[in-house]
Nucleic acid binder design. Structure first.
Lengths: 148, 148
DNA sequence: GAATGTTGATAATTAAAAATATCAACAATT
DNA sequence: AATTGTTGATATTTTTAATTATCAACATTC
């Protein structure tokens, strides 16, 4: 019996991931330090990437190389995702949530003490998983404004 | 009787504006070509900048130099402004509006044939005037999602 | 337990965006 | 009409973000 491997299951160690993407290992780790990606960490603290992670990285790579958006630009764009509408947090949550008032860091780079997000793995969160492209972000903004 | 000069009145020719900002004339024109700023044009097609324009440029300069957001990053961020909620355009307008489906160009860089924006001067529009900082953009996104 | 891969960190390099210089043609000012 | 400033365009330079190389310490695999 094989273990089922979907696109979200971590399978690639960092060197394989780097090879798949055609970039170096330090670059991959840099993107993580900047908060652009959240790879799974093994019990021994080693990064393991899923097919979804690879796809996300391709998108980020495209933003940098083709669209010429800088890393800080990407972070700022991610910080505009209306995460509060995705996770449906309460007004009290929003009052103390650093992400709600962040303009340059994506919400998944914060800890979420005392909010609905506390203890949740951002890697599993729709905010992180569904809005890696600015097309998707703008569509979300349209949706929450009551359109479509 | 003096003519009243508010912050929106064009007064500075390009060389003066460049001097005020500590940058060169070609740089100022480059920002305009990229769609970051819309200076007033004289009957002889010469650019004249208002105090508001200078302030806007300072903000853009800060984004580039301090926040390290690239020009294409700034354009992408501007394209996320929910302009349709500001100008209150109709569903029919949105259907044909290029800005509504743009992910990398601010709305004020398009022509707006057959929409509520047709013939309007984007320089006078709230979308252009009120949302030059990403703090303001995020606050607008909060507002249209029904918060505050 | 030996071989191979990963970690975080810093230093060095590369790539490319941002800014400037320069140009002849036109506009504004006196 | 002479002087000074502007225009759009292209070429060049400067700056700096992005990437890679390298390291000793630790983890994993067989």
């Amino acid at each position: 019996m094989e273990k089922p491997v979907d696109k979200h299951t971590p399978i690639y160690p960092i060197r394989t991931a780097a090879k798949l993407l055609g970039i170096s290992v330090p670059t991959l780790r840099m993107y993580e330090n900047e908060g652009l990606i959240l790879p799974y960490k093994s019990p021994g603290n080693q990064r393991i990437y899923s097919e979804d992670d690879i796809e996300r990285m391709r998108c980020i790579r495209n933003s940098i190389k083709e669209l010429k958006i800088s890393i800080n630009g990407i972070k700022t764009i991610y910080s505009l995702i209306p995460c509060w509408e995705v996770v449906k947090c309460s007004e009290e949550d929003r009052k103390i949530c650093k992400a709600f008032d962040s303009y340059h860091q994506p919400c998944w780079t914060f800890n979420h003490k005392n909010t609905i997000c506390e203890g949740r793995d951002c890697r599993e969160c729709d905010v992180y998983r569904n809005y890696s492209k600015c097309t998707e972000i703008k569509e979300l903004i349209k949706k929450i404004s009551g359109i479509k």
